[in-house]
Design a protein around this nucleic acid. Structure first.
Lengths: 226, 226
DNA sequence: ACAAAATTTTAGACTAATCTAAAAATATAT
DNA sequence: ATATATTTTTAGATTAGTCTAAAATTTTGT
């Protein structure tokens, strides 16, 4: 519609490169990591990287991993923007659970229409965060700044607000649902077990809750301002 | 998501075969017609028809044109259902004009998630017709029955309700917008010119309006019950 | 520091969807 | 009714994205 020059597949690679770079604090992404996340083999990734480098979407030195160029990053951010806006739509307007939306948004993120994205954004009230707490880039590709900490880095007796998750698997999200841990809820660290580093929490000043260290490492929180 | 077995492209062919068959009152669709509507060449269509026949989505005898099987029709109706539901969404929820939605719906119609379609349908209030007046098949593939006539078949002094269009080009739709002819409006045939068969109409019992025979042939109407 | 292990790239092949050019079948027109 | 025109199919290529197997490069462990 707005852009005939880049394929569905290329968009996907650029998106994944962006997200993995972010996860590695800006370090290069390796071929094998990409193969894992694109559900393909390393050989296929090598081919695609050659192609993306040719089109100047990435900086690529053989055997040395890969980084997005400014052009590549803008495309990645556009795809991520659409993905997260559609996730908001699916949850806020259609009533999906946060554990059900990823695969649908993976499809919707490639719908190509600037006008649609703009109107969807307005329809949703220009949200800054998606249902998992991930920031939504604006139409210029600017990310809302976030400063989350892992719950596993919070000290005893500290109260925090639940702001996001660093794992998006349905299993993890459903686990949180079962414990009534939702975006925006209040958590206070009552005790950290010496034995297994599991957390004893107070949820919303009411309910005692135990979560494993695995859970604590994947919950993103912010120190309460109150 | 729900169906790995059929490609985007195959879905498109089946949809187009359905719509052309309908337009030809159930007669076979020719290779050249398909080439025109798929924006490809006859040779490519021949290949695809062989493939679709192999998968039992169509009945195909070389040189004799093509017709959908029950299986093919169900797939076509599913795609058409999604296309028309998304069109309702774009107009009713996002405020698009009826002339702006076709190309976006062409993309959205291939999003594969039964649950999404179901929830979208509910969100929109289970509409029976899209913004062009076309009927929306239900989840079982059943089309709401319609009995429209062309305005060009209506006799003098008859009052009718505007129910749909048989051409969806932005130019035609914008032309109707300019004349304030909208779905559901009231039209009375005041005079038909002997010279060029153009129509002198009364719109909503208020406004005199002249439309060409070309327009009259592409407006679908129903005799007013009042 | 260098052999072994791991990773990455290249080579060659496959599939889906498309194309052009040529051959085959059908339709048409005097 | 038969020559001509039109339509459709086949043959042979092309491109995007993928694969396996083998070669090249980098990393790791002692």
């Amino acid at each position: 519609m707005d852009n005939q020059l880049i394929s569905f597949t290329e968009e996907n690679y650029l998106k994944i490169i962006y997200l993995l770079t972010e996860r590695h604090n800006g370090n290069e992404v390796s071929t094998n990591q990409l193969a894992e996340h694109t559900q393909t083999k390393a050989a296929s990734v090598s081919d695609m990287l050659r192609k993306l480098a040719e089109k100047s979407y990435i900086n690529y030195r053989k055997y040395q991993g890969v980084r997005l160029t400014e052009a590549g990053e803008q495309i990645a951010l556009g795809v991520i923007r659409k993905h997260r806006l559609w996730e908001v739509f699916l949850v806020e307007k259609l009533g999906f659970g946060w554990d059900e939306i990823h695969d649908i948004a993976e499809q919707l993120e490639h719908i190509d229409s600037k006008e649609l994205t703009k109107r969807l954004d307005d329809f949703l009230g220009n949200p800054q965060f998606d249902p998992h707490g991930d920031p939504i880039p604006d139409s210029k590709g600017k990310m809302p700044s976030v400063s989350y900490q892992k719950l596993s880095e919070i000290s005893l007796n500290q109260s925090v607000v639940m702001m996001g998750v660093s794992v998006h698997s349905p299993a993890f999200l459903q686990h949180l649902d079962k414990q009534q841990i939702t975006l925006g809820c209040d958590l206070k660290v009552l005790e950290i077990s010496d034995f297994d580093k599991s957390y004893d929490l107070l949820l919303n000043d009411e309910i005692r809750l135990f979560v494993s260290n695995e859970v604590a490492r994947n919950l993103l929180v912010q120190i309460s301002s109150t």
